[in-house]
Computed example of a mutant assay.
Amino acid sequence: MDVLSDAIGAMRLGRPHSARTAFESPWEQHFEPQQGAGFHVILQGSCRLIPAVGEPILLGVGDVAFLPRELGHGIAGPDGSGFTQMLCGAYSLDQSRAHPLFAELPDVVHLPARVGRHPSLHGAIELLGQELDRDTPLGGDAALPALLDLLLLYLVRAWYDDRPGDTATGWAAALRDPAVAAALRAVHEEPERPWTVQSLAGHAGLSRAAFARRFTDLVGSPPLAYLTWWRMTMAARLLRDTELPLRAVAARTGYTSEFAFARAFKREFGAAPGRYRHGSADGSGRSGLGGEQEAGS
């Protein structure tokens, strides 16, 4: 288990899609806000990306623009740019439960083309382009979504990899801190365990007080508040995507009692688990990352 994969997996909805597009200057396109994320890769020519907030960004050959939350944006050819070819894609994501690791990303992640930088990302882009260009659909129904899922991971990873280690803050620093990263991995690998601050501190190799301070400073919430939030996020996904009975969902998320689980879930989402499962609730809920509390019972 790793935090990035879990964070993205918990937000994913439906199937991603991608296409190769080409424009002859002058041209301009607008994209409406939506519950998802998108990307543009410039294969030939250049263009301007016009974000919902902020100044336009000039994109050249090999540049990647990733929009982790689609607030609406435009793309247009610069004066005299002539022919422009792009690889574009979109993901449907549940932004109401965005993991703080994902929520920390800027509205536009610009990854300029640099020789030797992010070879895995550019390798995935090349494979995606080849798959889109295939004359036959043999295996495409499986290959395209898999490549797009891989690309999404590489896009987020590239942004975090570009954060300098000595100046990194927030989740970029948390994932590089051995003690905090060890505790996060433990929570994600075994969310059902009856974790306490003391047991997580032991896992991280720190005293209880030192661990609690370091975790809260880097992650932005106390250890047990994060644990509760992650358990509830997992529970919502299990209720939405599976037919597991409530007792099984409760057990997988660290609750020995179905009643205790239902009470915690309703406090988080404002609806009972059964009602949430059947679509009566909007699933917005509170983030649950505010205060220290014991998680599970």
Rank of each mutant, 00 (worst) to 15 (best):
P191S: 03
L152Q: 14
S92V: 10
G140I: 03
E243G: 11
C88T: 14
A235N: 04
P191I: 02
L147S: 09
P164I: 08
A262H: 01
V249Y: 05
R252P: 01
L111C: 04
A264W: 06
Y276I: 14
S46T: 05
G116D: 01
R240P: 00
P16F: 04
L289P: 00
L101Y: 00
G77F: 07
G82R: 00
P78F: 05
G139D: 04
L87M: 13
A37T: 12
P68W: 03
M232N: 06
G82K: 00
K266N: 05
G139Y: 06
R185N: 06
P119L: 13
H40E: 15
G279W: 11
L67I: 14
G165E: 10
G123N: 08
A142H: 07
V197G: 07
P273D: 04
P33C: 06
L206H: 08
A174I: 05
D2R: 09
G62N: 04
L105K: 04
L150A: 14
A260K: 02
L111W: 00
S46F: 07
A272Q: 08
A260F: 09
H278P: 03
G36N: 06
A19W: 09
T84G: 05
G296N: 02
A10F: 12
R214S: 01
T242F: 08
T228A: 13
A179V: 04
L67M: 14
Y255C: 04
A235Q: 07
P194D: 09
R15I: 12
W27F: 10
T167P: 03
G290K: 05
H73T: 11
G89C: 06
D94K: 08
P56G: 03
A264F: 08
A210T: 02
R134P: 01
L144H: 10
A10Q: 10
V219I: 06
V64Y: 03
T216N: 02
I42L: 10
Q29D: 15
R208M: 00
A7R: 06
E190A: 11
H203M: 15
I8L: 14
